[in-house]
Write a protein that binds this DNA or RNA. Structure first.
Length: 890
DNA sequence: TGAGCTTCGGTCG
DNA sequence: TCACTCGACCGAAGCTCA
């Protein structure tokens, strides 16, 4: 089928056409509305992209139908047996005892605006903008104007439409009032958004049976006339005719008419219907807004029911199997939350429109769809859903994105990326979350969406850490289309793979922990006073695994952490290191170089340089590859050096010589040469005044080494294998597949520069940790004879801090193992709670399934939703509905 | 082979 | 007057790698 084909135009209607699956939109002239929508959309890039998506769905359907045609009778019979078995199991476990209520405020945002601006009451209005509407009132819905419709199309449908910009602070305040009412019926109610919630009122109803009438009696002013608690809700309007600003004259409400002013009081009964009517009455009294509700034995049904008599109505399914099945039989599948237009279309292709048809073809569905999907279908067809309202379900990801007019300017793109990371970091910190996977989402001007992600080895939460990752993903995309500009219309940043609360505190002392010498992750080349203090053991240090360092001019990735929001504890190795430093410090007070002086030999880096970094990257977005790979991490400093147009002193982290240059590319080359073992004439000419003590130490060691003359050591020592790509253990490197700039040549050992000795001599001998407490040499061969002091190397045990006079890494590993066995175990025994203790803690908090690998995020009532309408992470997903039953039934 | 990761796309309001 | 299709979240499929 060719684009533009009339058949395809009919088809596309399902994509851009009116979705009238919403209260107040029945009986509209859909053809007329769709014609207008089509005319307005046609020819746009959006429309073209929708056509493309439509074709993809059609292909999926064709594929499904081809598969269906090949299904044999035998397969069907086998599938039917499985369906029957599962059905019987589900039936056995059917729970009808709970009374679940779904409450949904009617046209919430629009209703609030109409309440506060009465002249809007009689007009078609919507809340949103010309590009997108959040909701519309019922006058507007008669024209086909609905939520998630672009304002400009809505204007075509209804030229008189008044579009009011949203005021989320106001909606949040009203929502809070509504939630106060909810809490009286179920203190553990589950808010789904600002205007929706699930409640389990089973316990409330039990108590309610014993209440005197007086406790169920309300005056118009929401005053209980008698009883100990004489309360009057605030914000009550005295006049009845101002109570319902939404003006739903055609409301199919099944609830009794609310009391009129002259009646003054209303006594509510003890049944579920009466309790819910009372709740809605109180909401209306308190906010002057109406709500609709559904009452059913589970969440899935309650949700469908709340829509049944919308607006300002309620509907109940009795807790009997027959009542449930009668309700389900004729229910269109599209009415079920979680079944959208694509699933609806695929089911329609199989002749399935209603839930009864769903159950008739379940065997076939089990062959055509994944297990998860057809299990969902089966439960829908049986009218099953979650009977437990779980408030603290685990959030899986958090993101933020923005749509804008075309953006091709690289500088703007990086700036926006930074801004998004900032927003995301704030949200993360608000919910005390840390995640490991950073995803960049890009939508180009043709509406094509791309996501690019990578996963770090440690969870992060700060703006800098997120941006460090996101900017590289962005750079990779910019480079991909280079020299053409990346023409964007949307950018988003997402974080996922959250670590659980328990994981936030390390439970195991690892060798990795040792290598995080950076004390607080501030990671400027010049340690701060606090960092110094920390290194000297005067304050706690970080325990986090390797994080991105945006500020270190030498290293994009380095040990240490920028995760600064949590109280930090020193690892065993950090303590050992601090202890060592303390000793050295004491020694240096009388002799030897001052620690701070040595550290000053590193170039200073601005503590707050991310904006600058963004600019740098933006302006040098297409650097020559050879420069980019080795010096990306230095770009920031480089830019500053360039912009300042001054000579800067840099200390090579490999040979430790000071290099004076204004061009960091040269400095990078120097480092590369050092790493590869080549002499660098420039560096050799530069001053080498810094490490006298180190040289002395080296000389001593050399003398000792020469004494040994071990033939085995010579054999190994002349040609050591060096992992040029990473001069720190490979296991510390982040998983960075998605970026072309993972090359990291200079990190890690910079910290040791702060000491008067080289604890690992890693520049000379790169080792990687094998994971079992030992180090091993890796890959590239380097002739150490070409390096100063290259014909021997001194290894210092990271545990006991004693110099090991051997080049034999096997011997060295053996020594480290021995030390680890002794000291680490002692330390772990002393500081880490026994495993059993941790597990019992998890059990205390977790419910049912909470004792799995993942731990639930815990906490009491969440604060008002930080992100627009999202109050709690659960959504109306099929999964959510069946969660309770799944755990019970499946 | 299966766990983990990445990408795509479905759903909701 | 004009404006010209969002943002958040989750899950499945497909891929990679040990």
């Amino acid at each position: 089928m060719e684009p533009g084909d009339s058949k395809e135009q009919d088809s596309i209607l399902s994509s851009v056409a009116l979705n009238d699956n919403k209260a107040g939109m029945q009986g509209l002239d859909k053809n007329k509305i769709n014609k207008i929508i089509l005319e307005t959309s046609k020819g746009s890039r959006f429309y073209e992209n929708e056509l493309k998506k439509e074709r993809q769905v059609n292909q999926r359907i064709e594929k499904m139908m081809r598969y269906k045609a090949k299904v044999t009778e035998q397969q069907i019979q086998k599938a039917q047996a499985e369906v029957d078995s599962l059905t019987a199991d589900l039936e056995r476990r059917r729970v009808l005892e709970r009374v679940i209520v779904h409450v949904d405020m009617d046209a919430f945002y629009a209703a609030v605006e109409m309440r506060d601006c009465p002249e809007l009451k009689e007009k078609p209005m919507a809340v949103g903008s010309m590009s997108m509407l959040s909701t519309s009132n019922y006058h507007a819905r008669r024209y086909g104007v609905r939520a998630a419709m672009p304002g400009f199309i809505a204007k075509k449908l209804c030229p008189d439409l008044v579009i009011v910009p949203p005021n989320f602070d106001k909606y949040r305040a009203v929502s809070e009032q509504v939630r106060e009412v909810f809490a009286d019926y179920d203190p553990n109610f589950l808010p789904m958004s600002l205007d929706e919630a699930y409640l389990d009122i089973t316990e409330h109803l039990k108590q309610r049976q014993h209440w005197p009438d007086s406790r169920r009696t309300y005056q118009i002013c929401e005053m209980k006339i008698t009883g100990e608690l004489y309360e009057c809700e605030t914000g009550v309007r005295e006049e009845t005719d101002t109570l319902s600003p939404v003006l739903f004259e055609d409301s199919p409400s099944s609830s009794p008419v609310l009391p009129r002013a002259e009646e003054k009081v209303e006594v509510f009964g003890t049944s579920p219907e009466e309790a819910v009517r009372e709740m809605r009455f109180r909401i209306e009294q308190k906010t002057s807004l109406t709500a609709s509700a559904g009452i059913a034995p589970n969440m899935m049904l309650a949700k469908v029911c709340s829509d049944k008599n919308k607006p300002n109505g309620q509907y109940r399914i009795l807790p009997e199997r027959k009542a449930v099945m009668d309700f389900i039989q004729e229910l269109p599948v599209r009415k079920v939350s979680g079944i959208g237009k694509v699933t609806e279309k695929m089911l329609a292709a199989l002749g399935i429109i209603s839930c009864s048809q769903l159950s008739q073809q379940m065997a076939m569905l089990s062959l055509l769809f994944s297990d998860t999907t057809w299990h969902h279908f089966l439960q829908i067809s049986l009218g099953l859903g979650s009977t437990r309202i779980e408030r603290d379900t685990e959030r899986k990801s958090m993101s933020t994105e923005r749509t804008f007019a075309e953006m091709s300017d690289v500088y703007e793109q990086y700036s926006l990326c930074k801004e998004l990371c900032q927003d995301l970091a704030k949200d993360l910190q608000r919910e005390s979350l840390k995640g490991k996977t950073i995803t960049l989402k890009l939508k180009n001007v043709n509406f094509e969406v791309k996501t690019r992600a990578f996963t770090l080895q440690c969870a992060v939460c700060s703006e800098e850490e997120i941006f460090a990752a996101a900017k590289d993903l962005l750079k990779a995309e910019i480079d991909t289309v280079s020299p053409l500009p990346l023409r964007l219309r949307l950018m988003g940043v997402r974080i996922s793979s959250f670590i659980s609360a328990d994981d936030k505190q390390p439970q195991q002392k690892s060798i990795m922990g040792f290598l995080k010498i950076s004390s607080d992750g501030s990671s400027s080349a010049q340690p701060s006073k606090s960092e110094m203090d920390s290194m000297l053991g005067f304050s706690v240090g970080s325990t986090k695994e390797q994080c991105i360092d945006t500020k270190n001019p030498f290293s994009k990735w380095q040990t240490g952490t920028g995760c600064t929001t949590e109280p930090r504890q020193q690892t065993f190795f950090q303590k050992a290191h601090a202890k060592r430093l303390r000793k050295q410090s004491e020694q240096e007070e009388t002799s030897g170089p001052n620690l701070e002086k040595i550290l000053e030999s590193f170039p200073r880096d601005s503590p707050n340089n991310c904006a600058e970094e963004t600019q740098t990257l933006a302006r040098t977005s297409h650097p020559p590859t050879d420069e980019a790979d080795s010096s990306l991490s230095i770009t920031n400093t480089e830019s500053k050096a360039r912009s300042a147009n001054t000579m800067q002193h840099f200390t090579c982290p490999v040979c430790f010589n000071q290099i004076e240059t204004e061009n960091l590319t040269l400095f990078n080359r120097h480092i590369d040469k050092c790493l590869s073992g080549e002499p660098d004439s420039k560096s050799m000419n530069d001053s080498q005044h810094v490490f006298e003590v180190e040289k002395n130490l080296g000389t001593q060691n050399k003398a000792k080494k020469d004494d040994h003359k071990n033939p085995d050591l010579n054999a190994v020592g002349m040609k050591l294998k060096l992992d040029k790509e990473a001069s720190f253990p490979s296991s510390f490197r982040p998983n960075y597949k998605s970026s072309a700039h993972s090359d990291c040549k200079t990190p890690f050992f910079k910290h040791y520069k702060s000491t008067t000795e080289k604890p690992f001599h890693l520049p000379d001998k790169a080792m990687s940790y094998s994971g079992s407490g030992s180090f091993h040499q890796t890959t590239n061969t380097v002739n150490l004879n070409e390096q100063p002091d290259a014909n021997f190397s001194t290894l210092i045990c990271p545990v006991c801090n004693q110099t090991q006079d051997t080049d034999d890494l096997i011997l060295f590993n053996h020594h480290v193992d021995m030390c680890l066995n002794q000291e680490v175990l002692l330390e772990i025994r002393r500081t880490v709670p026994p495993m059993a203790q941790t597990e019992s803690k998890a059990e205390d908090h977790g419910k049912c399934s909470a004792a799995k690998g993942k731990s639930k995020r815990r906490g009491s009532s969440p604060p008002p939703p930080p992100k627009k309408t999202k109050a709690i992470r659960t959504r109306h997903t099929i999964d959510q509905f069946f969660k309770g039953n799944c755990s019970q039934n499946l």
